[in-house]
């Protein structure tokens, strides 16, 4: 039940959403990821409404330590990517996994009834 979604599954979703061939659907998944990556590499953030924001942050260099040997190693300044999930995504994930309802199908919850 805990399976992992991959590019192939995304391509399948695209295939089902639009009347394109399977190979073109797969290519478009790649294009989307590549356009996002390219923007991030340029230093732009990528904001997908109701999903989240990917942003690039610059980290200063610092002295680190090899946890195994205790030896000090310099860590170069670098850029890291961070993802801030939107409220919509956070709510979907939390609701989806709450109250043991993890395995429930896509029935809209009848929450507004009291």
């Amino acid at each position: 039940m805990s399976d992992t979604l991959t590019r192939a599954d995304l391509a399948e979703s695209v295939y089902e959403a639009v009347g394109l061939s399977r190979s073109e659907s797969a290519a478009l998944v790649e294009t989307v990821l590549e356009e996002m990556s390219a923007a991030l590499v340029r230093g732009e953030s990528v904001k997908i409404s109701s999903f989240g924001t990917f942003l690039v942050r610059a980290k200063n260099g610092r002295m680190g330590r090899n946890p195994k040997t205790g030896e000090e190693v310099p860590i170069d300044p670098r850029r890291v990517l961070s993802f801030r999930p939107s409220h919509v995504l956070k709510e979907r994930v939390d609701e989806g996994l709450h109250g043991g309802a993890a395995a429930s199908p896509d029935t809209p919850s009848t929450a507004a009834q009291d």
């Binding site: 992992t4 979703s13 959403a17 989307v32 979907r92 609701e95 996994l97």
Partner: peptide
């Protein structure tokens, strides 16, 4: 539709507690 399908699929998967791996 294509772009939405991708992010919807990721969201649905996470809402079921599944991982999404994009090498």
């Amino acid at each position: 539709r294509i772009v939405n399908a991708i992010f919807d699929a990721i969201t649905d998967s996470l809402a079921k507690g599944n991982r999404v791996e994009l090498r």
